[in-house]
Design a protein around this nucleic acid. Structure first.
Lengths: 401, 401
DNA sequence: TCCAATTAGTTTTCAATCTGAACTATATGG
DNA sequence: CCATATAGTTCAGATTGAAAACTAATTGGA
């Protein structure tokens, strides 16, 4: 007999409805709904909502925030919101910097700190030590604002094994199969720390806290070219968890060799390194080179202009193929593609028009507005969403404690 | 307040468990499980399984098939199976032929008939009329075997709007926005007739009735190059329902114009027409040209060999990009790629190794064994699966009748 | 032949959970 | 100050699966 899914129990109904109510509160956001409004919005009876909300309030996930009035007759409702006294820490390790932030359950970035750190080639232990110093700042800020830290999310620029806390491969950090211990950054946080991929987290940040649309491809141009695929408001990770590798789509059969072992990959035409080299930007720190490149573009330097133009053309080819294959109708540019968007977009759009006419409406090619905090918000948001999607487990744990 | 998902009701538990039990019976297949075995397999109690099975038997979906013995002590169990007296009709409209089949709930193809029909450019009404004549044969066969027809699935080589029964675009039939009335083919069938895409149906047929694996990309080389993406044992259709368009991945930036309006698409290198032309196969019917091409390959004709070799090379590029983007680790070749597999595979594999080394294990590039019946099985299977996934609705309907 | 052992399946009691209706609580406005 | 309106709670009733006790059917050995 094949293994099957778990059987439905009567108690599952409550699990689902707890999540439904919590999600309703989260999505209503600033409007701070009453129990009666939740009943109307979810289709549950007032009786059921009252009982569910009682559990959520008792666990501390939801707070009552005074009476709700809108000038009409009748008894006023009690406004409800996700507790502003519970937070999750977002953390990011990138090639040239470390960043941390504190996000409350409502998705507000309550504290934020970034430090430059040349992490390329540095041992994971060393990087984690530096990150630990930064998280100490977050803990202090949380204590000062009386926010309990429930857990954390740590984003890294590479392929991760979330279950085992292993960075399988982060070529731009020169990390291969590195075992991390992210829990150590937040001892005692009940939900622990979840490791995630930087491009995926940025895509989720964009989904939940940025220009949310249910379906889009997020393109992350950091040192590598990464991508995050959002379908029906969920991250598509593929069977093995590494979907969205836009940087290694083949855009020219006779293209140069790529660090991945293949050849003709998008990254060899549109990665940061490739653009800097084609533009003739001298070696230096990322910040310096970016500054120089933007300056050259502003001065209409022909070499820099052509470099970015070509990158846009090949990015257009990769997006045309991706959009056809995955049926994607919207694209959000992040990372250095966001910085270069003004110079990149014309050739990108004309390339899309040449290789997949009519497929992608130009108005649906947008630039991320979250900048670097998108990754932090997404990394923390994954933990927040996991609570919203299964609050029952959280209630159990908080009842025991 | 945002619209939310439907609230959980106590009755949902039974919906889910009915499906769980039915699915368990379906997956156990020829082993014909007893109630006690189902209880062990699903995690439900014997009492619950008995009650659920009683409903399923009453509705006619499940039959008891005598006592189950395996030489051990104790009371023998009643074997259960999906009823062999209920069936679904699979139907296929393709460029050069029409096909119908009768599939019982257990997935057995009980009757099968194909006729040549040059449908390219023919009006949908005319084609549906011919198909109607063919379905009459199926109805007669079903009556003779005392099988009640529950519904049907109709696969066409194009993009469909399943909800509205519209063929949005089937370039190889020269159909654009054609409204069909598939229900008319099976008047009175309680589940109606579901319209679907041919490549997607073939992929699902492969999943359910062929070399089932939970994750793979099915490549359908009919007149166009189509694809079906199976992730976690489900068809991935994308937000708009048209994912898997492998034929229009850009494999060469300077490639020729494609019928889709783009250029450099895989279809211009590896579509049937492109291969026939490159191989120098003279014009004629599909059957004749295929026969000639296979003959030329067997005779090691250099032009034919090179044509197929090149097609394999570009197919490899498309698969490398797809595998990277969607994290796919297995590929099943169908349609004319299955026929050409012996000559295609070498260049395809070396191309994969060049553009995405190590990504796809050569042993996971396989050829479909279902041949043309895969599409029929998949088209019918979608209706069968819809019953297995929500039997509650079916029970309700059969109780009213 | 007959009974202990074993396995299949049913019946009964109980707890969880939602619905629906009746009820209480708290506001507005004439 | 009371009619009206809206928010929220309480309680009986229905559905459902779990758990345990029960009945049914078969084998094998005394």
């Amino acid at each position: 007999m094949n293994e099957s899914a778990a059987p439905g129990r009567v108690g599952d109904v409550r699990r689902r409805n707890l999540s439904l109510v919590l999600d309703s509160i989260a999505r209503t956001g600033d409007a701070k709904p009453s129990r009666a409004q939740l009943a109307a919005g979810t289709g549950l009876t007032k009786a059921a909502v009252s009982s569910l909300v009682a559990d959520l309030v008792e666990s501390g996930l939801v707070s009552e925030v005074g009476l709700y009035r809108d000038g009409e007759r009748g008894r006023p409702g009690q406004g409800l919101e996700l507790s502003a006294r519970r937070g999750v820490v977002g953390m990011e390790i990138n090639v040239d910097y470390l960043a941390v932030g504190l996000v409350d359950l409502g998705g507000n970035l309550r504290f934020h700190s970034t430090v430059e750190s040349r992490n390329r080639g540095l041992a994971p232990d060393k990087v984690m030590e530096r990150l630990g110093a930064l998280t100490a700042e977050v803990k202090a800020a949380a204590a000062a604002e009386n926010i309990a830290i429930l857990g954390g999310g740590l984003a890294v620029p590479g392929l991760v094994d979330e279950q085992r806390n292993v960075v399988v491969s982060a070529p731009n950090l020169h990390w291969e199969r590195e075992q991390l211990n992210p829990q150590s950054l937040l001892e005692g946080a009940p939900l622990g720390v979840r490791l995630s991929n930087e491009a995926n987290s940025a895509a989720l940040g964009e989904l939940w806290y940025g220009a949310g649309q249910p379906d889009f491809l997020y393109v992350s141009g950091e040192v590598g070219v990464g991508g995050g695929v959002i379908i029906a408001s969920e991250l598509y990770t593929g069977p093995g968890g590494s979907a969205g590798e836009l940087g290694h789509i083949v855009v020219h059969p006779e293209g140069p060799a790529c660090s991945c072992g293949g050849s003709g990959c998008l990254e060899t035409f549109a990665g940061q390194e490739a653009i800097f080299e084609a533009a003739g930007t001298p070696a230096g720190s990322l910040g310096e080179r970016t500054h120089l490149l933007l300056g050259a573009l502003a001065a209409e330097d022909p070499r820099a202009t052509k470099a970015v133009h070509d990158a846009g053309r090949y990015l257009g080819i990769a997006l045309a193929s991706s959009a056809r294959l995955m049926d994607i109708e919207a694209v959000v540019l992040g990372g250095h593609f966001a910085l270069l968007a003004d110079w990149l977009k014309p050739s990108l759009l004309s390339s899309l028009e040449r290789y997949a006419p009519g497929l992608l409406d130009p108005s649906r090619l947008t630039v991320s507005g979250l900048e670097h905090s998108g990754t932090l918000l997404g990394a923390a948001g994954q933990v927040i969403r996991s609570v919203i999607e299964s609050p029952f487990e959280f209630l159990l744990a908080s009842k025991l404690a």
